[in-house]
Amino acid sequence: MGNVKRLCLLIAAICLLPLFGSCGGETDSAYAEEQLFAMDTYMLLRAGGENAAGALAAAAEKINALEAELNVRDAAGTGGAARLNAADGQEVEIGAELFSLLQTAQAVSEQTGGAFDITTYPLTQLWGFGGEGTVPDEAAIAETLARVGYQKLRLDAERRTASLTDGAQIDLGAIAKGYAAESVREVFCEYGVESALINLGGNIFALGEKLDGNAWRIGIADPGDTRETVGVLAVRDTAVVTSGSYQRYFMRGAMRYHHLLDPATGRPADNGLESVTVVCADATRADALSTALFVMGEEEAVRFWRETGDFEMILIREDKQILLTPALADSFEITAGSAYRVKTVS
């Protein structure tokens, strides 16, 4: 991983304690568990019920199959996403799941005015987030931006093909884990699992409620000290996904450059936000929106929430203010003694 700080791996491991360790009157033995490393992160699945073991095995198999199909860095180049990136503008026939994911990505891109954009792979490579990290000059950024734009992805539903124009390439890092969480949820439902917690490197889906009837309690990381939480969110049957500037970055002198790149400027988004948490019934949408809202910044994120209304959010600002949408006010509990201040947006 070089000097690029992929702290999401450590954060995921640390957050397992607040996420899974407090089960009220339950014990860990009430849930079967599966741990794996996939999609460049640590994952932990827990499921309750008599079919839990079979459901977990099937879920792990599903995640590994999705990783093979969605990994744009696949060295073998056999997965659909890798083949599309290597096609040099030619049409590529792809699988139904990848095609559906690309359709969703395009829809979110259009809805967010390009704040979410899966064609930022050339920018990610330019900044070196797959290795040591580098700060490109303005000329290089401008040249690379010419290859970025969700409109450069062409989809043909009738033939189930995809193509990329103008040297564009896709990066599914801001949506793939959400899609995988949705897929695991579907597997669990097929096996009759009604109580489970899916943690894909911090992309959470809380299925149903805990076996004791209580809500799941999800820790929201403190951007200033990821060993701690700013608070706990009580949820049932929903996705909770966070994007933050602290999750993956590199340092150059005193400057920190994070991985949440603004497709409009080609640079890390710089708008006073440190993290965005989205609570949404659909994990794929939650994953994509957490990135989009971070790129938008507070004002545009709040406007988008007001106009859309199909998700809730928590914005954490650099000045240690936490902004909640009203529906989360009663389910969010701030950590005792926290320096953060909570405000409800309207």
Score class of each variant (00 low, 15 high):
78 T>N: 11
334 I>H: 09
92 V>M: 07
246 Y>P: 06
146 A>F: 09
294 F>T: 01
38 A>R: 05
153 L>D: 04
187 V>T: 13
41 T>W: 07
33 E>L: 15
306 R>W: 10
23 C>K: 13
58 A>L: 09
38 A>Y: 06
28 D>H: 08
203 N>P: 14
131 G>P: 09
54 G>H: 06
58 A>C: 15
284 T>P: 01
198 I>N: 00
166 D>H: 15
33 E>H: 11
298 E>N: 14
336 A>L: 11
209 E>K: 10
109 S>A: 11
77 G>Y: 04
233 L>E: 00
19 L>H: 10
247 Q>V: 08
252 R>I: 10
173 G>K: 00
62 K>E: 13
156 D>F: 12
176 A>C: 08
95 G>F: 08
133 G>M: 06
14 I>L: 11
323 L>V: 15
205 F>W: 12
332 F>L: 04
343 K>I: 15
285 R>D: 05
323 L>R: 06
18 P>T: 04
150 Y>D: 02
278 V>C: 01
82 A>L: 02
85 N>D: 10
24 G>R: 08
161 T>P: 01
213 G>F: 03
196 A>W: 00
278 V>Q: 02
167 G>E: 06
110 E>D: 09
279 V>R: 00
100 S>D: 13
159 R>T: 14
202 G>S: 13
234 A>W: 07
108 V>P: 02
120 T>S: 11
108 V>I: 08
18 P>Q: 03
316 I>C: 12
87 A>R: 03
159 R>K: 12
109 S>Q: 04
275 S>I: 03
189 C>L: 10
297 G>A: 12
112 T>H: 10
161 T>E: 01
279 V>L: 07
35 Q>G: 12
189 C>W: 07
325 T>M: 04
341 R>Q: 08
334 I>Y: 10
15 C>L: 13
100 S>N: 15
17 L>D: 06
41 T>E: 13
151 Q>C: 08
32 A>L: 01
309 G>I: 07
34 E>T: 10
196 A>T: 08
144 T>H: 03
288 A>V: 02
327 A>H: 13
251 M>A: 08
62 K>I: 03
7 L>Y: 11
80 G>F: 02
119 T>L: 02
54 G>W: 02
298 E>K: 14
344 T>E: 11
277 T>D: 01
337 G>Y: 08
118 I>V: 11
12 A>R: 02
86 A>T: 08
147 R>Q: 10
268 P>L: 06
146 A>H: 11
320 K>H: 13
7 L>Q: 09
83 R>E: 00
69 E>G: 12
202 G>C: 07
293 L>N: 04
229 T>Q: 14
212 D>S: 04
253 G>P: 04
203 N>F: 11
102 L>E: 00
146 A>E: 09
118 I>G: 02
127 W>Y: 00
201 G>P: 02
132 E>H: 12
29 S>Y: 13
163 S>Y: 08
258 H>L: 03
83 R>A: 01
92 V>P: 08
50 E>R: 13
129 F>S: 03
254 A>W: 15
283 A>H: 07
16 L>K: 14
346 S>K: 09
178 G>Q: 01
122 P>Q: 14
257 Y>G: 05
221 A>H: 03
101 L>E: 00
205 F>R: 06
332 F>R: 00
266 G>Q: 09
44 L>E: 13
86 A>I: 14
60 A>S: 14
